[in-house]
Amino acid sequence: MRTLWITALAVFALDQITKVLVVQVAGLAYRGSIDVLPPWLNFRMAWNQGVNFGLLAGDGDLTRWILIAVALAISAWVLIWLRRDRAGRWALVSGGLLVGGAIGNVVDRLIYGAVADFLNMSCCGIDNPYAFNVADISIFAGAVGLILFTGREKAR
């Protein structure tokens, strides 16, 4: 489980540091957008009150607290599951990615009332209107990793 905790802490720290640097220090919250390597990488400020792509977004505090509770419940379930099943190294890394990202987004909801999304990538004439953050990438990678690296029982 040590691998999971180290991964989760690293993801959480990277997520929060990038948000502070881009949103606060670089002033993205006030500027709205910063072209970094257009069109491939841009910073576009988006306050996401829902889940992916703004789904379930609501202006009420109830939605925010429900999403916080869901993220914490899923994180707790992953921790219990991986501990109970004595998961391998890559499953623990995957769990750490998911838990660290989820806690990063929970902290955003507690501090800002919404998740700070800022990474925007486009390519090849396709203009991507969506923004995401390090936590979102980690949650996605962790979920894929859990699918790939768990559930295979060894032959007895």
Rank of each mutant, 00 (worst) to 15 (best):
V134I: 14
R109W: 01
N42C: 06
I74Q: 06
A143Y: 07
I68W: 03
V70Q: 07
F53N: 04
L110H: 08
N128F: 12
L72I: 10
I6S: 04
L98G: 00
Y112F: 15
V107W: 14
V107S: 11
R109S: 06
R109K: 10
A73P: 07
G101N: 10
G50R: 06
G113Y: 00
A57N: 03
F132H: 03
L28V: 04
L92I: 12
L55H: 09
L9S: 07
D136Q: 06
N52L: 08
A87P: 08
I66N: 04
G96R: 13
P39R: 08
I139H: 02
G95E: 13
L56S: 04
R31H: 08
A143V: 12
V99P: 00
N52S: 13
M45V: 04
I68Q: 07
L62T: 15
Q49C: 05
W5L: 14
L97H: 12
V78E: 04
L110Q: 09
V106G: 03
D108N: 11
A57R: 10
L41I: 12
I17Q: 06
M1W: 10
I139A: 01
Y112N: 15
C124L: 13
G58C: 06
R84Y: 14
A155R: 13
R64I: 07
V107D: 09
G145T: 07
M1Q: 12
A46F: 12
D127G: 06
G50M: 05
G58K: 09
L4P: 00
G88Q: 15
G145W: 09
S122Q: 04
I139K: 05
I34R: 01
S94T: 10
M45T: 03
G96F: 12
D127M: 15
V23Y: 01
M1G: 13
A29V: 09
F132K: 00
I17T: 11
I80F: 14
A8M: 11
P39M: 05
D108Y: 07
M121C: 15
